[in-house]
Design a protein around this nucleic acid. Structure first.
Lengths: 120, 120
DNA sequence: CAGGATCCCGCAGGATACTG
DNA sequence: CAGTATCCTGCGGGATCCTG
């Protein structure tokens, strides 16, 4: 239980990673790439509500972190594929556990909120 | 695999939950409460870098979602305990999987970033 | 089609001061 | 001690227009 690293400490590298997860779109995007390579436009359509700017930006961050590989095909019109690296795929497990939890508990949470708001 | 709910859809309640996880402090705070009840001041000290405002705010959100229970002891000086509810504790599993992943991969990620930045 | 470049607004969130 | 109240700023992030 005693971890060599303390995620709660400000300087800890693992916290950097947690911050990345804490990005609104990262989780959604990794999930959207779960089933294989996707093109820019596909991702824009799949992840509801994301802007091109955020899509580009998040994709870059993931690429920078070595979680996503970007492949440019020299054709016209341009074609660019994004796919998870091995590291990226390894994140899928923990993430799906999280979304599963989300789906399992969303009803309870919605109810809890309504009760809380009713009192306040 | 085919979920009845689509977390990628904007209106899906599960997305609300994901947004909550996507809060910078939520994950850290839930982790800090893992071992049992904690007082306000303890949490402020344990979670490095959090401001009082954010601590209060995040704690409220968690309480509102039914993940944390707030107990006020009528003594002077005031004493307030925060502890995870059953629902809150159920989040611990998925979350620890995530932090474990973070600790496991942080080195790779740091290296990947340096390489990426070196090229760019 | 895949993005880069800009403009701009809202609000997350920090710092500080005050209170029961 | 455990907050609330207020002020203020950075930047997250959307909308829009442009290019190879």
């Amino acid at each position: 239980m005693t971890q060599p690293w303390d995620p709660y400490a400000r300087g800890c590298p693992s916290r950097v990673v947690l911050d990345r997860i804490g990005d609104r779109w990262t989780v959604l995007l990794v999930g959207a790439l779960a089933d294989g390579p996707r093109r820019f436009g596909e991702l824009a359509r799949d992840v509801d509500g994301i802007s091109q700017k955020m899509l580009t930006q998040t994709l870059r961050s993931l690429e920078r972190d070595g979680l996503v590989r970007r492949t440019v095909h020299a054709v016209v019109p341009p074609r660019v594929d994004y796919e998870l690296t091995d590291a990226g795929r390894s994140l899928l497990g923990p993430l799906s556990a999280l979304t599963a939890w989300a789906v399992d508990h969303m009803d309870d949470i919605v109810v809890a909120r309504e009760q809380f708001d009713a009192v306040t």
